[in-house]
Design a protein around this nucleic acid. Structure first.
Lengths: 346, 346
DNA sequence: CTGTTAGCGCATTCAC
DNA sequence: GTGAATGCGCTAACAG
């Protein structure tokens, strides 16, 4: 591994000045075609590639996105971040952006990392995941003028419309509506809900999707109260919760929708194949055992995040000239992936 | 977000030259204590932090590790990379190293990324995961003098001892030996094995662990042949495979060890609680349903990878003065995590 | 111990 | 169109 070629080397090889080389790379149309060809030939012959740090220093932008790797791999749903990260990295690369990782034990420590990374000009934008109500991170970022986008809505009432806060999220309510409707359409009626306890931004949102769909189907509040169970994340909790609902309804359950695949897996085991269970997140577990699940459009989330980050949305209009929604956030629709149980636990 | 403070700013504030500031930060003992104090005070007052790109340009090292984010998290075991990545990032940070992500659809494309990242001086070391026999990636890296460490042994016979190839791996054979012994110690005898088809470096390694332990326990080859099933990754495959073993042995199975949690989950569902099943990777799924599994010491893997990468292993000796094995690689021992089934699928 | 000087590789002024 | 100069912020040579 000898010294890497520099602009000067390319210039010498092509018989032009350093400058011209720089122009060819950054403003191609300003250079005469034949000169350009010659320079490009030299570039590929020498295997030249601009020195990232030199460019970043000169341009004063790192073109690097910082994202925290969640410590919590507790839940089965940890894979969601993983898939998102993959999509984000791939799409960022296409835009000439890099993704840099960091870790933090909690919000405070994450803020300390924001400070380190931004003060050191390591990173010039952040992507946050799993936002929660009263999230101190976004507050800090706004206060310090940092560029960022969250995957997840700001659940606090005030923040929701903060123009400084760009976000992309998936409409969990619509997801649960779709799941519930799917079961209703199969002629099932007493669809139970197993989800996280309130208050929880995402949890309450998904719960609402089930509840309102069931009401539309004609069930009254008493029936619905008996059909729902709120419980913390975890497979055993899912199983317990479903058994509780069965007890409360006299075993009249005909189907279940859940706020996560973990809970769904528990419910599935408790249901023992007597009726369908639908999960959320479309994790590998769901796929492998053949459980239906709501899939988040992670590729689109990544696209949205990058658009918001790079400001590629500014003044966008549709063909008919109408502006494309609010340019400060995106709410994406998830998709139900219906499946037939592959491995019956009976 | 105004302009970031530079060394000059700190120097002015502390009433010293730029240099001294640099010295305080990079060679503290070369500066008189009182001056040092004064400089450090200015540093923290201004919130100064060295500009990463400037430093990288100057020192000609990016202090950045590149790692590919695996495309498919198909298997349940995808979480393993995730946990490893987390450990790696956290420990790298403590060493002043950053972790940069990239993606690639296959080995060829990954090599193209190696080229881009190294030619651009974005990264000065790579960490590879899931190596396989005849892996073209390591060959390329060695040929091009790139610094790298693989998480996973080079499975080819020739490469195994290549002094250029630093690696860290987990002793899957020992893992399966521990799992098998655990069941034998409980008085069980006819322990089945469900694992990946041969040839597969990791697969054959784990298989050997089971097989040799069973032989030591006195079972003969015919019995063992009937007790083992080799099948591709996947929950349904695990279930099928176990049923096949049951058929072949007349239902005499008393326990199962597997080469992955996916297969184990399938086996577990097929076993319906009649006997214990042990998985591999200790994924969240295993933890949540209460399935025993072999845990890879990912924190230690990360430690080993970084030691090898930074060359911090040179000439290390133990308390008693004995050298600590071969400094070019590490083979770590996994640990069995025994559990009681939480959610019986019956 | 401290200050001066000189680049790292690039992109962005300006003159030609 | 092309060439020469300048500086991004830092550290590593030196000289005092």
């Amino acid at each position: 591994m000898t010294r890497l070629p520099t602009v000067s080397d390319v210039a010498t090889a092509a018989g032009v000045s350093r400058q011209t080389v720089s122009n060819v790379l950054n403003a191609p149309d300003v250079v005469r075609p034949e000169t350009r060809e010659r320079v490009l030939a030299a570039v590929s012959e020498l295997g030249y590639r601009p020195h990232a740090s030199a460019r970043r220093l000169r341009t004063q932008q790192s073109s690097t996105i910082g994202i925290r790797l969640d410590p919590m791999t507790d839940g089965i749903s940890g894979v969601v971040l993983d898939r998102f990260l993959h999509a984000l990295t791939a799409q960022a690369d296409a835009l000439g952006l890099r993704v840099m990782l960091f870790t933090a034990a909690g919000p405070e420590e994450e803020i300390a990392q924001f400070r380190r990374l931004s003060d050191g000009a390591d990173v010039d934008a952040f992507v946050l995941t799993s936002t929660f109500e009263g999230d101190p991170r976004t507050e800090w970022l706004i206060e310090h003028g940092q560029r960022f986008v969250t995957f997840g809505r700001p659940w606090g009432v005030d923040d929701m419309e903060d123009p400084q806060h760009l976000w992309v999220d998936v409409d969990g309510r619509a997801g649960l509506r779709a799941a519930t409707r799917h079961l209703l359409d199969e002629g099932l009626r007493r669809i139970a809900y197993v989800g996280w306890p309130s208050p929880s931004g995402t949890g309450d949102d998904r719960h609402a999707g089930w509840r309102e769909t069931m009401r539309e189907a004609g069930l009254d509040d008493d029936e619905l109260d008996a059909l729902e169970a709120r419980t913390p994340e975890g497979v055993p909790h899912g199983a317990e919760a479903l058994r509780a609902v069965e007890a409360a309804t006299g075993g009249a359950v005909e189907g279940v929708v859940c706020s996560s695949d973990s809970l769904a897996l528990g419910a599935l085991l408790a249901a023992r194949g007597r009726y369908p269970v639908i999960g959320y997140d479309n994790t590998p577990v769901a796929a492998s055992i053949g459980m239906s699940s709501v899939d988040q459009p992670l590729e689109q989330v990544a696209t949205g995040v990058l658009e918001l980050l790079t400001g590629a949305h500014g003044g966008r209009v549709r063909h008919d000239g109408e502006p494309v929604g609010d340019p400060r956030h995106r709410l994406l629709e998830p998709r139900l992936v219906p499946r037939e149980l592959q491995v019956a636990p009976a």
